[in-house]
Design a binder for these strands. Structure first.
Lengths: 142, 142
DNA sequence: CGCTAACTATTAGCATGCTAACAGATAGGC
DNA sequence: GCCTATCTGTTAGCATGCTAATAGTTAGCG
């Protein structure tokens, strides 16, 4: 039957948590975290993005984005603006402080990824990526 | 450079979160979750386990186990007992209600795993498992 | 023996995620 | 045009994880 830590789900879960904790640890001197960094990157890449769009891109629920933006706005990194042609919506924009953080953040994330995948062959990484993507797609189609 | 959702770390993170959310959704009618189920399984398999041992086996920090056991004890599923030969430690034990849940819980977790891995070849699953294990080991050795 | 170091569980406080329930705004069907 | 559906953001409340700090206990070194 297999103990939980040896099952695929168990290893997936633990590896993801450790990865995130390590990245959070490295980003902490900048007052950041993986969740904040991912949000900033999407906001930078997709101008005039609404909160609902941002939630879909990040793959999380709307209330999660509300809290995340509250913290990022409190840090002075982003701001919400009312959408002119739809009074329900708000668009999210990077402020100067947020823009300045983009480069060091991205470098840290890529460095960690390189370190962790260093002794894997490209074939192994490609195979695993594809497996994870197919699991994700199946979960999204439930 | 690649957007975050397309990076290995991003896909790993999202897939793990979706897997856990789906399992939590299915376990909810039983008043359970993935974290509770994993703890119960380890407690059942390792008699007279201390909280520190349990934390190490689950791969989480000690305060996380404190909260988890508080909730499981409030549900009447487990109990703490003082360790006779070390007054710092407490051992954790399954109560009757917890024992009764083991079988349906394990079946649900295995069913989900089977569903999600159904259209993967054994070689692909083996390769991905190995890659995840190596990443995990590297993270643990930081 | 005694003192310091390490271990054990706990508390407090925070971040990130979820669901449920809501209020306001829009859009679509009649 | 209007009424209902749906969409958008928000709040409230919870679960799971973390770090830092604390109190009590044990163990190890001189």
């Amino acid at each position: 039957m297999g103990l939980p830590q040896e099952s695929f789900g168990g290893i997936l879960h633990e590896t993801a948590r450790l990865w995130r904790t390590e990245l959070d640890r490295r980003l902490r001197p900048l007052g950041l975290s993986q969740a904040k960094w991912r949000a900033l990157l999407h906001i930078a890449c997709h101008k005039d993005c609404t909160q609902a769009e941002l939630a879909a891109r990040l793959g999380v629920e709307a209330p999660t984005v509300v809290g995340l933006l509250d913290r990022l706005a409190a840090d002075g990194l982003v701001e919400r603006r009312e959408c002119p042609h739809d009074r329900r919506s708000k668009t999210v924009h990077l402020r100067q402080g947020g823009q300045a953080l983009m480069k060091p953040i991205t470098e840290m994330a890529e460095n960690l990824s390189r370190e962790l995948l260093a002794n894997m062959s490209p074939e192994e990484v490609a195979c695993s990526t594809q497996v994870l993507q197919r699991i994700r797609d199946r979960l999204l189609s439930l």
